[in-house]
Amino acid sequence: MKSLNTMKFFPFFLLLYLLSTATSAAPSPEQKEAKEKGIELYNQYKAISAVTYLKLAAEGGDDEAMYYLGEAIRKNNRYMNAEAQKAYEDSAALGNIYSMIRLGQATDDLCIAMNNCPQGKKAAKEWMDLAKKSASLEAGRGNAESMYLMYEISGDDKWLEKSAQNGFSLAQFRLATKYQEGGGFFLLPANRLDAVELWMKASAEGGYPPGMMGLAAVSIEKKDLESFRLWNEKAAASGYVEGVFGYGSYLGEDPSNYGFKLDLVKSYALLSLLYELDGGGHVRRNVEDVLPEIAKRMSPEQIKEAKKFSEAWKSSHPPLSFFPDKL
């Protein structure tokens, strides 16, 4: 009887054990913070600086941090080395479809060719098949991002359209861009322009900063300066580098070609923020062409005010980002 009681309560104690194990394995606050910082640096094209933070975050078992770690290492080395591949494999083992796709795109290494790989090692085709199976399953459940990944895997525009129709803002931006570049079939040029605006607007309203700048560009073509100013400012407020540079530059123009009200203090403040982007993107070069000319028209008091404004903006807005594609 005693043995039966023990068996009866065993699942309860097992559950407690599993819960305590899961809790202890959860990422620490430090690791969560490291993930945010690592991805921030990666999105600023500072992949070398991002690695240390992403390694710490990956140690907490975060599959997305592992994926970005693989990306940072791969880009730093310009190819997928063993360290990057391990990061992707660890991430893929936790179900990360982005990592599966990246592994599926890799060239198979020598052990595959020699048929002497360690047991359990997958070939690139196996990873891609697994990515397709996983993305297809999630897409079938209505996941719009997985629909987009099915587009990336298959190249079938129908998946891009489905993803856009289901609200994935990156897919909406990509679909609008595809139409801009001549993709799709439209009876009339006006119909094409309407479709571009429709999907660019959906992307912008969905919070995707490149979509905001895309809609601003569409507004210029329509000579809708009010809409252009609105979406340029929203893109800047999101931290999008292109938006910050454009908005900051336009505020320093006198007269303004696009109807922005002259504000040298804000112009200087926003443009000076971009000096921290000493990685890729070549944005510092553009700032160095524009900012000195604006500074010449400012008093020392205005420059001091601009520096205070810059710090306040930085503390109250998202970090600067080029918003590179995740895949």
Rank of each mutant, 00 (worst) to 15 (best):
G279H: 02
F260Y: 15
F245R: 02
D254L: 06
L270G: 03
P255Y: 10
V265Q: 12
L251S: 08
G281R: 05
Y250T: 06
L270C: 03
L273E: 05
V265Y: 11
G281Y: 11
F260R: 15
Y275P: 00
L262K: 15
K261M: 07
N257R: 15
V244F: 03
N257E: 05
Y247I: 14
E276V: 04
G246S: 13
G248P: 06
D254Q: 05
S256C: 08
Y258K: 14
S267P: 06
L264F: 06
S249V: 03
G252W: 15
G243L: 11
E253R: 13
E253S: 06
G248W: 01
L277F: 07
Y268P: 14
L270Y: 03
Y268R: 12
K266A: 13
Y258T: 08
L271K: 04
D278P: 00
L264V: 04
K261I: 00
L262E: 15
Y275V: 00
K261E: 14
K266L: 14
G252K: 15
Y268L: 02
L264I: 03
G280H: 12
G259E: 10
D254H: 01
L270A: 02
L262T: 04
Y247T: 13
S267H: 13
G243Y: 14
L264D: 09
G259S: 06
V244I: 06
G280M: 12
G279E: 02
F245L: 06
K266F: 13
G252S: 09
L271I: 02
V265G: 10
Y258V: 08
G248V: 01
L251G: 08
L270M: 07
L274N: 03
G279C: 04
S249L: 09
G259W: 11
K261G: 05
E276G: 01
G243V: 03
P255E: 10
E242H: 14
L277A: 03
E276R: 05
L270D: 02
G252Q: 12
L273Q: 09
S267M: 10
A269H: 11
E276H: 05
S272F: 06
Y250M: 11
D278C: 00
S256D: 08
S249T: 08
L273A: 03
F245H: 04
Y247G: 07
V265I: 09
A269D: 12
G280Y: 13
K266Q: 15
D278W: 01
G248Q: 04
Y250V: 07
S249C: 05
Y268N: 09
E242K: 14
S249G: 04
K261Q: 13
L264A: 03
G259M: 08
L270Q: 04
Y268T: 02
N257Q: 12
L270T: 02
E253H: 08
L274W: 07
G279R: 02
L264W: 08
Y258F: 12
E253I: 07
G279K: 01
K261H: 10
L273T: 00
G246I: 10
S272I: 00
P255N: 07
L274M: 07
G279Y: 02
L251T: 05
P255V: 05
G252H: 15
E276A: 05
L273M: 11
G246H: 09
F260A: 14
K261Y: 06
S249M: 10
G279I: 01
L277S: 02
S256M: 11
G279T: 01
L262Q: 15
G259N: 07
V244D: 02
